[in-house]
Design a binder for these strands. Structure first.
Length: 545
RNA sequence: GGCCCGUUGGUCAAGCGGCUAAGACGACGCCCUCUCACGGCGUAAUCAUGGGUUCGAUUCCCGUACGGGUCACCA
């Protein structure tokens, strides 16, 4: 076979060589140990947890003086969605992940571009041509039906699937056969001619998993699709070589095709990047675990967390605790330190798929929000409400000081309240501040009938003085409790229930329900002061109707 | 089915040949307490399994089971 003739036949327009590109994309001038990595999403418009997961490369790159870039894998035109690139950039920025180079909203930056794969067609074809020249690639004219038939035959014969051995029908055809098909205008793909032996195991060092042994690839996989655009496999190898990527961080589902990537790097004589295969995030489905699915699981979408209103930093903190097993301990020891001061390392990453733990996220978020200032929470909640709860946003804007005071209840000090971890939870929690009136029929604390309740409230209103301190206020409540025949100390009532009508808990719960419509709420005195005297009296009075 | 990866309490996990097998979330109990939340103290709960190697295996090797992934002109 005359490979030169074949190469010219297949790629008559390609005049560049690999060396031209080697010169165009010189090795990066970076300090020793600098990590160059990237995320390379396909522009489907769906930004998911996995993207953020792999964005951990940003930490690695920036900790080592390296480069973190964004490449868009748009080789599958069918799935492309408008605005997807913007969505990725926005989402990443939202979580504090910024790119040094690559695709930007209005174009791209960096010396290793273009960073959109479809624009790199000539580069891929140049590499492809070089492979043809070396007898390592050949055209295949099989139709979809041919391949389907092959698959079925293999299934029936209980043989391994794939284009190899006797099934690789175009592997050794003559140049005349090829020319004939070409002249007919038959569509073709370019396949890799693999000399791999499945008996051979090749060692691959994984940055997360350590030494891996993978079976050598023996299938003639597709390099170039019929439109001349490369498959993921080929594009990945070409791009990560010429973009001088040192670390490829990706989901473990790529482990299955690692052999072909390694094979390509080796045969092209290029240095393999350090592969880092992360564990897949799982979820419980009935009684079994399964991979989080784009179609079925809303919590995989990053938008789910912004909608629920988890503060970005909280989500990021959760992700770090899942990603690096020693982060949690570090964070506990340095609660006030910026999470970016934590040194992220690959060897602290888990290798087994973990369940996504919403409860833990919630806990981390509560912890985080409890530490923030009322001002911060107000701003965060307002920003969220503007999108997801416009009415709340309007009220918050009109009565900013009122809401800040409400948010400030129980905040600060040694033991701040942890009432909510998300903006949506905060909205619910704060709802009673502007729900106008509660009725005696709404909620009924025990140990008092209607008349008794009216008497308690009336007497409370008579003694209520907004100039009182919290202590003075509580002293009055105690006095009232005693006068009415209730036990000031709940324990005493529990011990001898027959001696009292009830305990102070019944009295305060009544006040709480009259004021907030619920039995569980922060300090009554503080709430009253947020509401103001007029509103407090109005609610207590209205409750008695 | 072939191949690959994985398996420590309910969940996330530390451990890297010798420990009463950390810690966190959750659960439960007690304490604090005007309710709730917070906080404090405590309890229950884990090395999938069978063989090796070794004086000694959670740790190293092999098999089995189970779980997951992957076998496209999708990434």
């Amino acid at each position: 076979m005359d490979y030169t003739a074949l190469a010219e036949l297949l790629f008559p327009d390609i005049t560049k060589t690999i060396d031209d590109y080697e010169a165009l994309y010189p090795p990066r001038d970076l300090p020793d140990g600098a990590v160059v990595t990237r995320i390379a999403p396909s522009p489907t418009g769906f930004v998911h947890l996995g993207n953020l997961y792999n964005a951990i490369g940003e930490r690695l790159a920036h900790q080592t003086g390296g480069v973190f870039y964004l490449r868009i894998e748009d080789t599958d035109q069918k799935r492309e969605v408008d605005g997807a690139v913007e969505a990725v950039i926005d989402a990443m920025n939202f979580y504090g992940v910024h790119f040094d180079e690559g695709v930007t909203k209005d174009g791209e930056s960096g010396a290793y571009g273009p960073y959109r794969q479809r624009q790199r067609k000539e580069l891929y074809q140049t590499v492809a041509k070089s492979l043809v020249l070396r007898g390592l690639a050949y055209p295949c004219f099989c139709t979809e039906d041919d391949l389907k038939a092959m698959h079925d035959a293999q299934e029936a014969a209980k043989e391994n699937y794939g284009y190899y051995g006797k099934y690789a029908v175009w592997r050794d055809r003559t140049i005349e056969d090829i020319r004939a098909e070409l002249e007919k205008g038959t569509e073709w793909v370019l396949r890799f001619r693999s000399e791999g032996d499945p008996e051979h195991m090749i060692p691959v060092a994984d940055g997360i998993r350590g030494e891996l042994k993978v079976q050598e690839n023996y299938t003639d996989f597709v390099l170039l699709k019929s439109d001349g655009i490369p498959t993921y496999h080929f594009a990945h190898v070409c791009d990560d070589h010429f973009m001088r990527t040192t670390h490829v961080i990706r989901d473990e589902s790529w482990l299955a095709t690692l052999p072909i990537h390694v094979q390509l790097f080796d045969i092209l004589g290029w240095q393999r990047p350090v592969y880092c295969h992360t564990a897949t995030l799982m979820k419980m489905d009935g009684s079994s675990k399964r991979k989080l699915s784009k179609r079925k699981d809303p919590e995989l979408a990053l938008s789910y967390y912004s909608e629920a209103g988890y503060p970005q930093e909280a989500t990021w903190l959760y992700l770090l605790t899942v990603l690096n097993s020693n982060f949690e301990e570090w964070h506990l020891a340095n609660p006030d330190a910026n999470s970016r001061e934590f040194t992220f390392s690959l060897d602290k990453m888990s290798t087994s798929g973990s369940l996504f733990d919403l409860e833990k996220l919630d806990n981390i978020a509560k912890e985080y929000l409890a530490r923030q200032s009322a001002e911060f929470v107000y701003e965060g909640l307002l920003a969220w409400a503007k999108i997801y709860d416009p009415e709340l946003a309007a009220r918050m804007t009109a009565q900013a000081d009122f809401y800040k005071a409400a948010i400030n209840v129980g905040r600060g000090g040694e033991k701040p309240r942890k009432d909510y971890g998300s903006w949506s939870a905060a909205a619910k929690f704060l709802a009673f501040y502007d729900t106008a009136t509660f009725r005696i029929t709404d909620a009924c604390p025990e140990n008092a009938d209607g008349d008794m309740k009216r008497e308690i409230l009336t007497r409370y209103l008579n003694t209520l003085d907004f100039a009182d301190s919290q202590e003075e206020w509580f002293a009055k409540v105690k006095l009232l409790t005693e006068e009415l025949g209730y036990a000031v100390q709940p324990k005493k009532y529990k011990k001898n229930p027959e001696l009292y009508k009830g305990s102070i808990v019944d009295v305060t719960n009544l006040l709480r329900v009259a004021l907030t419509g619920r039995q569980n709420a922060p300090d009554i005195c503080e709430i009253s002061h947020v509401l103001g005297e007029a509103e407090t009296r109005r609610r207590l009075t209205a409750y008695m109707d």
